[in-house]
Nucleic acid binder design. Structure first.
Lengths: 180, 180
DNA sequence: AGTCTACATTCCACTCTTGACATGTCATTA
DNA sequence: TAATGACATGTCAAGAGTGGAATGTAGACT
């Protein structure tokens, strides 16, 4: 009740799991698959990370083991406390952390390469952006957009990815033109 | 010479430092300031991280203490080995790591909020993007673009930031329209 | 009956990153 | 001369994230 929880800024993985469980109960394995498909672009996570965090979340009562299945399968479900925590995370305006981009970081130092090599790097970026764009288009076609609550906002997140890749491609083309 | 260096994927901070030192020698303090200004958008780093990494880099011979100054100031300079490592990092096509974005992650779960609250979140994003854009515009005006090698590619990186923030603003406005 | 694939979890060792704490010096200016 | 602010470095604990190894079960197909 009156526990003093010194909530830190990070812990987005925790909230990603709560968010996915807010839709429907799922096992660690299910969640891993969901991360690989829907959340991969926003917040990639590995198997070991997910299972570790699930154990912690169950320990603090934000989720519970709702059912046990065939192969030692544990199906987790969100508790009321967990939903409250998820809402808190979404509403309480946590100043969002700066994103890191090693792609952009490299750009700063392209001056140590020859112009040809720099062009090569930008060409790679263009290809990468194209691939990202195409892969999202394929995802768009394969997903059933009449699904759950994730579908509305999942579609919005996907649009972000499309626009981002398009933007990056155009920028890289422009940048290539800037290098004599 | 024939050391077998099992280079891992990450360690971008290391290369960010090598990159900055490729321009001119600098102290930890100088580098901290450079991170705050030029590299802040691409790869934020804290003081403790920078000093720790500088010590490590000096230990492995990628940089050296070129001079000592007034207040225990140690001026580091890139060695030939360090330059080689920087070039290696830039050229050897390391598949770039996925970026994490808690901003985008939240979007997936806006369904647990009311439409009004979701609109509120998107409005925050619009404001954030505007602020980012304006702040980069101000940086653009304050920087001497006839400076060193960083200026050409620094300008290109800055353009990336401008386009990114503009894209995100437009996307958030579009997204707000998608929510009934 | 044997084999293969998908399902399913746990543990470990390591690096990266953050945020705070701790310490001290030089130059300016009030 | 005393205070202040910019300069300058170092250390530590804890959380976040990576990558791999180890283990085993259920179902489907041959």
């Amino acid at each position: 009740m009156s526990r003093v929880e010194c909530r830190l800024d990070g812990m987005s993985l925790r909230h990603a799991l709560l968010g996915l469980l807010s839709e429907r109960p799922a096992s660690g394995y299910d969640l891993l698959k969901l991360f690989e498909t829907s959340l991969a672009t926003a917040w990639p996570a590995t198997q070991s990370q997910i299972y570790t965090e699930l154990t912690k979340l169950a320990g603090t009562g934000l989720i519970t083991v709702a059912a046990e299945g065939p192969r030692g399968r544990k199906e987790y479900a969100l508790t009321d406390e967990g939903l409250a925590e998820l809402r808190h995370w979404l509403i309480e305006t946590k100043p969002q952390r700066n994103t890191r981009s090693d792609i952009l970081l490299r750009v700063f130092f392209l001056g140590v390469l020859t112009p040809e090599q720099a062009h090569g790097y930008l060409a790679e970026l263009i290809e990468l952006s194209d691939q990202g764009y195409q892969s999202l288009r394929r995802l768009e076609e394969s997903v059933d957009w009449d699904d759950g609550g994730l579908s509305v906002y999942g579609r919005i997140a996907l649009e972000y990815g499309l626009r981002f890749n398009a933007m990056r491609r155009e920028w890289a083309e422009w940048a290539a033109g800037q290098i004599t």
